[in-house]
């Protein structure tokens, strides 16, 4: 009984390590075959459309709502200490440092990441990938790498849009609806948010998230068993794995970036 459980556990661990190695090799291959994505940039543009443009609506709407909630909650909390004027700084800092990169990446994973996995998985299941290989065309270069770079380019842009919409939402609730002084809202924000320290670091975060989410989504699609269940399972795994990875990486990056405070 115990031996059996141990064997099962050992099997799982060996499998996980194996998959990690395979995933790393896959990631290296993406980078190795990335030349085409830039030489024939229209391939990447196509994917920018399906990952970036198609995620625009959800990012803009979600960003606005998150900013509005931040405005409301932040105001209620700050009011107790008589520092409502710091609302702008609170909203903007939360957004550019944490919520923008993290929430945009989570939304991106479930909107674009899952779609990428399903698409690649289905291409594999319907032998489109094998067909490409038989035509002497490398699917890593032609199919996978352009999607990867599109995701990596989209993510920081989407995160910037999310944060900007969030600030706008916070402004609407804080200044327009509640009546916090407009001047102090913006000036406190500018005084509180540092370009290098907050905005650039936030962008670095979302770049890293973009790499992680897209790589996971593509790997899961490429590795999916070529059946209906295989593809649907892989899609679920993409969302779960990339969400956990985003939160974990966020912790690591935050610890590195903002430890000096």
């Amino acid at each position: 009984m115990i031996v059996e459980n141990l064997r099962f556990l050992g099997h799982r661990i060996v499998n996980a390590v194996w998959r990690m190695g395979y995933a790393s090799r896959f990631f290296m291959l993406i980078l190795f075959y990335s030349g085409t994505s830039f030489r024939r940039f229209h391939l990447t543009i196509r994917e920018l459309f399906s990952s970036g443009v198609m995620s625009l609506i959800i990012i803009l709407v979600a960003g606005t709502f998150v900013g509005m909630v931040l405005g409301l909650q932040g105001y209620e909390t700050l009011k107790r200490y008589g520092s409502e004027s710091a609302l702008g700084s609170l909203v903007a800092l939360s957004l550019v440092r944490e919520l923008g990169p993290v929430l945009a990446a989570l939304l991106f994973a479930s909107r674009a990441g899952s779609a990428m996995t399903a698409e690649i998985g289905l291409m594999k299941a319907t032998e489109q990938i094998s067909a490409m290989e038989m035509m002497a065309i490398n699917p890593m270069a032609r199919v996978v790498a352009p999607r990867f770079w599109a995701g990596v380019i989209s993510m920081p842009l989407l995160s910037a849009l999310f944060s900007a919409m969030g600030v706008f939402g916070g402004y609407v609730v804080g200044v327009v609806l509640i009546g916090v002084d407009e001047g102090s809202f913006w000036s406190q924000m500018q005084a509180g948010v540092d370009f290098q320290h907050d905005i650039v670091n936030g962008m670095i975060k979302s770049f890293v998230f973009g790499v992680a989410v897209t790589a996971i989504a593509l790997f899961e699609g490429y590795d999916a068993p070529p059946t209906a269940e295989g593809v649907s399972g892989a899609t679920t795994r993409t969302v779960v794995e990339s969400s956990l990875t985003i939160l974990f990486l966020d912790f690591i990056l935050t610890a590195f970036m903002f430890q000096g405070e």
Partner: peptide, 20 residues
Amino acid sequence: IFVVAGLGALAVLALKVGNL
């Protein structure tokens, strides 16, 4: 449009929200 909007948002963040 997407790329311009994204870069625009970044510029807003840098100039209006941040202290660039």
